[in-house]
């Protein structure tokens, strides 16, 4: 397998795609949003429970490619207990990592487990798979009702 593929499909990514964390509907969600990636048919619904602007709980359902599923799973794992504003700032950091790669403005090691997404950078067509959950998160937090589309 070539290096770019190995960087894209790191073990952690495969693991999160096969056994996504927080893959469930929250019955007590305070906000939710839907996201689509029409190019490959990725679809996810994101549920967030906010208590005093802190993400108390977060979950998602849907179907998608390994990258979008792993990204959603890693995102939910990273965001529990984070403040709403911190979550949105983290999205910015992740977005820079995905588009600029490991040698860009955001060093991967500052992002904890989310660093495994740095390989996506070599596959520009897949960036929208990796950002789908994050765009959906933003919509959920901002209370937008129009589904996100990363096309």
């Amino acid at each position: 397998m070539n290096d770019e593929l190995r960087n894209l499909y790191q073990e952690v990514v495969i693991d999160h795609s096969k056994q996504p964390r927080n893959f469930r509907k929250l019955t007590d969600a305070t906000c939710s949003a839907e996201g689509y990636n029409p190019l490959c048919g990725d679809q996810l619904t994101l549920y967030v429970k906010l208590t005093n602007e802190v993400i108390d709980d977060i979950g998602f359902t849907g179907s998608g490619c390994a990258i979008s599923k792993a990204s959603a799973s890693l995102m939910t794992a990273a965001l529990k207990g984070k403040k709403q504003q911190e979550a949105l700032m983290l999205f910015n950091q992740v977005h820079i990592l995905l588009t600029e790669g490991p040698n860009g403005r955001v060093p991967p090691d500052t992002l904890g487990k989310l660093a495994v997404l740095s390989g996506v950078w070599e596959f520009p067509m897949r960036v929208k798979c990796a950002t789908l959950a994050w765009h959906t998160l933003r919509n959920a937090l901002e209370g937008k009702e129009i589904p996100v589309s990363t096309e």
């Binding site: 070539n2 770019e4 593929l5 894209l8 499909y9 029409p38 190019l39 490959c40 048919g41 990725d42 179907s63 998608g64 490619c65 390994a66 990258i67 599923k69 596959f123 067509m125 897949r126 798979c129």
Partner: peptide
């Protein structure tokens, strides 16, 4: 349960062009 998009990306690196999606 491997998503077609992932199949497409891996095949692409082998020089194989297929279509994935709906």
């Amino acid at each position: 349960d491997i998503h077609p998009h992932d199949i497409g990306t891996i095949l692409d690196r082998e020089g194989i062009a297929i279509r994935t999606g709906h």
